[in-house]
């Protein structure tokens, strides 16, 4: 009897769902059918060697890469297919890039307000207020008038996070957010991600930060050769992975 009530809960619909995702470049298939669901408020880490397809999979989730086949749903709504309002859906999917991709010709505040003004059509005052609130959340309200080139890498990435969260997305995609940072700047960015999680943000993260994954993730997905090899809670994967490939990868990357 109990399952019926479980199904009736709104959380039964994943915030983000990937089904049978394939991606090929010409004759080369790099994703061989990925199935993945991210529940509301869940933080899922995707681990795997470079070339395992994890970034491609992530970039398919807002169709920066066009899936070759398969379906992707945002809160049950398909984002794949020809008829969908892709721009409308993308404003609900925040993305943070390895190389930050801040707009160098705009100051920090206008980096954040640009989409608020052009996409959400907010007025200047409202956009400014929302941008300042987002910059406050990443601890950079004081840098609103600075240009990206005047900021450290860690600060730039936090501004990029502010730019994404200001849109109030349903889910955030992180594509190796700390890989381009000097080691001493990584902590600030991870700190912001930790706070986002505490505030209930749904997140899908591709990263090599093993320690952070183990401590903060709700679930870890391990990918190899374009497939999901195994997934589970961090402790299970780190201490009792079922597959040899997972064990090899984790031991190699967690050695101090």
């Amino acid at each position: 009897m109990a399952p019926i009530t479980t199904l009736a809960q709104p959380s039964a619909i994943p915030t983000l769902e990937v089904r049978r995702l394939h991606k090929s470049y010409g004759a080369l298939e790099v994703l061989h059918g990925i199935d993945l669901a991210v529940a509301t408020r869940e933080m899922v880490f995707v681990l795997g060697r470079s070339g395992s397809g994890k970034s491609t999979m992530l970039r398919c989730c807002n169709r920066l890469e066009e899936p070759s086949s398969g379906d992707i749903f945002l809160e049950g709504q398909p984002i794949t297919g020809k008829r969908v309002d892709l721009d409308g859906l993308r404003r609900r999917i925040g993305m943070v890039f390895q190389s930050f991709n801040l707009y160098p010709h705009l100051d920090t505040r206008r980096n954040v307000t640009l989409a608020l003004r052009m996409v959400l059509k907010l007025g200047r005052d409202e956009a400014d207020a929302r941008a300042m609130a987002a910059l406050e959340r990443v601890g950079l309200a004081g840098k609103a008038a600075s240009h990206p080139t005047e900021l450290s890498g860690g600060q730039q990435q936090r501004v990029a996070i502010a730019r994404a969260i200001a849109m109030e997305p349903a889910v955030m995609l992180f594509d190796e957010p700390t890989s381009a940072l000097d080691p001493e700047l990584v902590g600030d960015v991870l700190g912001v991600m930790r706070e986002l999680k505490a505030d209930g943000m749904t997140m899908l993260v591709v990263s090599h930060e093993m320690g952070f994954a183990r401590e903060a993730a709700d679930r870890i997905v391990f990918m190899a050769d374009g497939r999901i090899v195994e997934e589970g809670p961090p402790e299970q994967l780190f201490t009792a992975a079922r597959h040899e490939a997972t064990r090899t990868f984790l031991s190699r990357h967690t050695r101090q």
Partner: peptide, 18 residues
């Protein structure tokens, strides 16, 4: 202009023209 610039803008829902 690096491709990431356009990708960042499109990821926030901006159209190609914007």
């Amino acid at each position: 202009v690096p491709r990431g610039q356009a990708e960042a803008a499109r990821s926030t829902g901006m159209t190609h023209a914007q």
